[in-house]
């Protein structure tokens, strides 16, 4: 396998839910040691795209290739076993479970055999804590602590460390920085860089251009389910990317519109769109 074969490739993938077409003709490539940033406004279809990659949805048309070979995922577990780990938006952690238990959900370490299998709490806690600390989150040192007691950034870090631990070759992160403060987001971005350094292919989804610019090697902008632009690091400026995401309407145009509105309405900003 040449170094240049993408680990994961989408070829002309469409996805619809009954009559609702969500994705149109998506073609994308992800390579080892590279971060692909998937940008797009809310509702553009980012989550649907990565759920298709994660085995949650089946593509309506088109093919998914892994290491150049066509694959079909029978479910999330199948995708995971093939090396695709996903940290889904709004999920992946269980607030009322301990760090150790939530780290190993679905793949619990056990002792004993048959019906007398025993969940191995000690091993689970040790591995979970070590995996998170290896990513530089040293504040997590007790696997019995409840996930609900962690900060948002720590929870995301835990979820990412989990995905990497279970042999991910492709790491998919759906808006991991969306609900985080500046400092915590920086934390998560550092972890993304660390995963990339370890040779993983990372698909990083966000609608914050700054976060994408900080880690991305390769960018794809999704508008209403289609890829509107596909470019590499350094080929576009921050303003250009922001304009692309806004759907062609440049930010400068928008600002001018608001300015005109305020002038004609005694300095009142326009009401928010409904």
């Amino acid at each position: 396998m040449s170094d240049n074969t993408p680990i994961l490739e989408l070829k002309n993938v469409d996805k619809s839910f009954g009559p609702i077409d969500v994705l149109h003709d998506i073609s994308l490539k992800v390579r080892a040691g590279e971060v692909l940033c998937l940008l797009g406004d809310n509702g553009a279809g980012k989550s649907t795209l990565i759920k298709t990659l994660a085995g949650v949805h089946k593509p309506t048309r088109g093919t998914i290739l892994m290491d150049g070979e066509p694959v079909e995922f029978s479910g999330p577990r199948d995708a995971q076993e093939k090396g695709i780990s996903t940290v889904h938006q709004f999920g992946g952690t269980f607030p009322l479970m301990s760090i150790g238990r939530s780290f190993f959900v679905g793949v619990e370490p056990t002792r004993g055999w048959g019906p007398f299998k025993v969940y191995d709490r000690k091993t689970a806690n040790e591995i979970a804590v070590k995996a998170v600390q290896d990513f530089g989150i040293t504040r997590i040192d007790d696997g019995d602590r409840l996930v609900g007691g962690l900060s948002g950034g720590e929870r995301q870090s835990l979820a990412i460390a989990r995905a990497v631990h279970f042999g991910a070759r492709v790491l998919i992160l759906d808006e991991p920085t969306a609900a985080l403060g500046v400092k915590q987001a920086a934390h998560v971005l550092r972890i993304v860089n660390e995963a990339k350094r370890r040779g993983l292919a990372v698909i990083f989804i966000t609608h914050q251009v700054m976060h994408a610019m900080a880690v991305g090697d390769h960018f794809a902008v999704l508008i209403r389910g289609a890829i509107a632009a596909d470019f590499r690091r350094g080929e576009k400026t921050r303003e250009e990317i922001t304009d692309l995401m806004a759907g062609g309407e440049t930010m400068a145009d928008l600002e001018a519109q608001i300015e005109t509105y305020m002038q004609s309405h005694e300095g009142q900003p326009p009401p928010p769109a409904q």
Binding site: A54, V56, G75, P76, R77, Q80, T86, H88, G91, G92, T93, F94, P95, L96, M97, R101, S102, V105, G106, V107
Partner: peptide, 15 residues
Amino acid sequence: FALGGDKVSARNAGI
């Protein structure tokens, strides 16, 4: 526990 904590996440985790 995972099923009751978050059904979708549990399914995504392969349960």
